[in-house]
């Protein structure tokens, strides 16, 4: 009798089971045994952490227009409307030649400086098949101070207007909210004030962002100068701010003790002291334009 019952159950099992498991099997067929490489994306919302470059570059065919603006020092009081009467500005263009390689130019009102740079992302953070803990970009820039010579009667050399910057930007996106970056930097000035000053200035930047919502993040950035002769004459730049993202724009609002907005300037020539209230309120407006469409969209 017992056996009979079991025998009766058997066909039921045979019919029901494939129906129930069939779909999972079908879905199971689609599961790859090979893990794919997952690349981290959007480590930072834009190409700057605050003033310093982030590992990000515009994608292939994308042109980024950046307006960076710092008002005057907040501690100047009501007469200068807490710094809002004054402005230092940098206008910049940044273009993605490939997804990894980008070039840029900029013009700052600070020392009427023209700067140009190349940025190459040579390691991408990934997990899965390929594992890479960090994204690393190399950044190289040169800038030209175009102020009129203070003493035109002297034999002035063009090369003394030029400085160079090399940075290794090493960033990790820890999770969807937190990304941190370390930026060891070398600034070379062709001309320094005195023979006691080193032409090469070594420093490192440390920065990061924490996302509060999908469109808003808090950012901070600090540059520490190691070369003594330079550290004595300047302050380390510290900035805190927010990134606010709308459709095609990223607005970055910040407070910083650095007036200039290009590397040689804010790393080695920051004069403001946070403790004195020498704080500049500033913003960057980033806008991107797609110049070259990806292949699939060329009609």
């Amino acid at each position: 009798m017992r056996l009979h019952k079991k025998l009766m159950l058997l066909p039921l099992i045979i019919f029901i089971t494939p129906m129930a498991s069939g779909q999972d099997d079908l879905m199971g067929m689609l599961d790859d045994n090979e893990p794919e490489t997952e690349y981290a994306y959007a480590t930072f919302k834009t190409t700057r952490v605050i003033s310093g470059h982030s590992v990000e570059s515009p994608s292939y065919g994308v042109l980024q227009f950046i307006v960076s603006h710092h008002f005057g020092r907040i501690n100047q009081g009501l007469y200068n409307f807490f710094g809002l009467d004054q402005a230092t500005i940098r206008l910049g263009l940044h273009y993605g030649i490939t997804d990894r390689l980008a070039i840029g130019i900029g013009r700052s009102s600070y020392q009427k400086t023209l700067d140009g740079y190349v940025k190459y992302k040579f390691l991408r953070q990934s997990s899965g098949k390929k594992n890479m803990p960090v994204t690393v970009s190399y950044f190289a820039a040169s800038d030209i101070n175009t102020l009129r010579w203070q003493k035109p009667e002297r034999d002035n050399l063009f090369s003394s207007r030029v400085s160079y910057v090399h940075q290794l930007l090493i960033a990790r996106k820890f999770n969807n909210k937190l990304s941190l970056q370390l930026s060891p930097s070398l600034v070379h000035k062709n001309l320094v004030e005195s023979s006691d000053d080193s032409n090469d200035i070594i420093s490192t930047g440390i920065g990061g962002r924490y996302k509060i919502t999908n469109s808003l993040s808090i950012n901070a950035e600090y540059f520490h100068v190691f070369t003594e002769s330079a550290a004595e004459k300047s302050e380390n730049a510290l900035a805190i701010g927010v990134d606010l993202e709308t459709g095609g724009h990223v607005f970055q609002l910040h407070l910083t003790n650095a007036q200039p907005m290009f590397e040689r300037g804010f790393i080695t020539e920051t004069q403001g002291k946070w403790s004195n209230g020498d704080i500049y309120f500033g913003f960057n407006i980033n806008r991107v334009f797609t110049i070259q469409k990806p292949k699939e969209f060329k009609e």
Binding site: P18, M19, G22, Q23, L26, M27, L30, E38, Y41, A42, P58, S59, Y60, G61, V62, G96, N176, N214, S215, G248, V288, T290, K293, P294, E296, F297
Partner: peptide, 30 residues
């Protein structure tokens, strides 16, 4: 499965490509 008529699709969302790189980023991130 042509016997049972069962049909399944699986779509990796990161594989969608857009005209504008930023759109693709927003699509995935936000």
């Amino acid at each position: 499965d042509s016997e049972s008529g069962e049909l399944v699709f699986k779509v990796l969302m990161k594989s969608f490509s857009f005209k504008k790189a930023l759109m693709q980023e927003h699509f995935n991130e936000k």
